[in-house]
Amino acid sequence: MSPQHSIDFCPLCGGGLCGIRICGIQRDNVPEQDANASSASPHGLVVCDECDAIWLEPDLTTAHHYPDVEHAKCPVCLDALWGPNSRWANHDDLTRLQWDLAINPALDITEG
């Protein structure tokens, strides 16, 4: 459950990777009436994989958020942070989010 692409180590807990996460990925498959409930399109988050701290931009000097301990939600769409509507961003997601230049390739984790 580690991020594939990260921008840096967590300045708060010190041990986590601040990985890029894409949220709202199921919007295309959701029926219209449900889609109206949340108008958020796929959006990016920076999340520490140790302490769950969240940044809304790929810049760790901006304000961070702490989600609820047990029921962590995305600050943008309020969906479950770790639910099926979001995932650690892959390279295509980075391109889609236009955050591909923000990552530090040295922190990439290739599974397997």
């Binding site: 807990c13 010190g14 041990g15 140790e50 702490y66």
Partner: peptide, 16 residues
Amino acid sequence: VRLVLEGKRVITAYPM
């Protein structure tokens, strides 16, 4: 040990 808590609830902990 780095110990991150919210009250008495453990968020994470690891050796360093």
